[in-house]
């Protein structure tokens, strides 16, 4: 454990800004964005990869930032919840959640928003049922999910069809 304090060079781009960092090997990407970069919108709910609150996009794909070491993200492009809104204009997924009262305490919200953003960006082909599966890696303890699903269905254009 003498290596605890040794630091490793990492180059990452977060929300469009390139960073050259020296980080401890054991630092997770979640700790990096929250503590090194001050982007506290990404939340840690369980730190063992179950709750999904810490979901960010790594090279455009959803990933749990508590299960990615910063050193593994070397060379990667990271997007966090802070990247979604453009000045005062909310991203479509944020607006859909506001319109549908998606969240309550909203601690889980950044994870859901980034998971749904990846579905939008990757043009996922979904039904209401498969949408539930896509969101089942994100836990919410407040809402019972109906409002989050409503918001996600709205932004993904799944409002018309039956719940099959």
């Amino acid at each position: 454990m003498n290596s605890t304090n040794s630091r490793i060079a990492v180059a990452i781009t977060v929300n469009g800004t390139a960073h050259e960092l020296q980080v401890p090997a054991r630092q997770t990407l979640a700790e990096c964005v929250r503590e090194e970069l001050g982007l506290t919108g990404t939340h840690l709910g369980c730190e063992h990869g179950v709750c999904g609150a810490c979901t960010v996009l790594v090279d455009g794909q959803a990933a749990r930032s508590c299960l990615v070491l910063t050193v593994q993200a070397d060379g990667a492009t990271i997007e966090t919840v802070e990247s979604l809104a453009n000045d005062d204009t909310l991203h479509a997924v944020q607006q859909a959640m506001v319109d549908n009262h998606g969240f309550q305490c909203a601690f889980c919200a950044p994870g859901f928003l980034m998971t749904i953003k990846a579905l939008i960006d990757n043009q996922a082909v979904l039904t209401k049922a498969t949408l539930r599966e896509e969101l089942s890696g994100n836990l919410c303890r407040c809402t019972g999910y109906a409002s989050i699903l409503a918001g996600a269905e709205a932004v993904l254009g799944l409002t018309g069809e039956s719940n099959a």
Partner: peptide
């Protein structure tokens, strides 16, 4: 070996696994 880390990292977080060396194949 650190491959995707999706099983190893949580075990390390809980200190159930604490390798002295991690070889990242990323």
């Amino acid at each position: 070996v650190l491959a995707g880390g999706q099983s190893l990292v949580p075990m390390m977080a809980m200190r159930l696994s604490s390798p002295a060396h991690l070889v990242d194949t990323g």
